[in-house]
Nucleic acid binder design. Sequence first.
DNA 1: GGGCCGATTAGG
DNA 2: CTAATCGGCCCG
Length: 188
Amino acid sequence: MKILTREFFQRDPLICARELIGCTLGFDGTAGIIVETEAYAAKGDRACHTWKRAGAREFVSSHAPGTAYVYLNYGMHWLFNFLVKGGENEGFVLIRALEPAEGIPLMRSRRKRKQLQDLCSGPAKLTQALGIAGRHHGCDPFAGNNWWLSKAMEGQELIVSTRIGITLDADYPWRFLRKGCPFVSVPA
DNA sequence: GGGCCGATTAGG
DNA sequence: CTAATCGGCCCG
């Protein structure tokens, strides 16, 4: 199993979002195969936090590529992104869905759901299943803690579509998901 | 300080 | 369809 390095995130957010599909994200005894992502660009993308938030722009400039950008949405849901920088464009990759792979009993108890498809099939579901929350904002997964990220087998078909749940720049085809996968948030 | 909005989710 | 629930940003 090949562990990805920080250099993975020193490229364009669109490339990172695409290539994260099929990788396995692990944290603290739980893990899942990434089956859905979205890219956000720090410049020129009105859906990205950097468009409105000075704090987000500051975050981009002051953290290393690969850093966790975790924020609270709708006052109750934590969403997890990887910071992407060092290439031509900077931005984030939102992790939107995982196929559960490890620590499934723990995921079930945190989620209070039995069905495998209900554990990580949404950006806020997977943070709850993995135990990711605001305290992980700014964490560096490559700084030798209990995060890991590995490349899984290739060969799955990829679908590209528009991003979910936004109103501005909603027509950009910046969402990536595994074709026919039952663990995504919204099928294409 | 007040008002508004949001990269969502579960339940009716 | 809607309630839940709160940090950031804008205004005053």
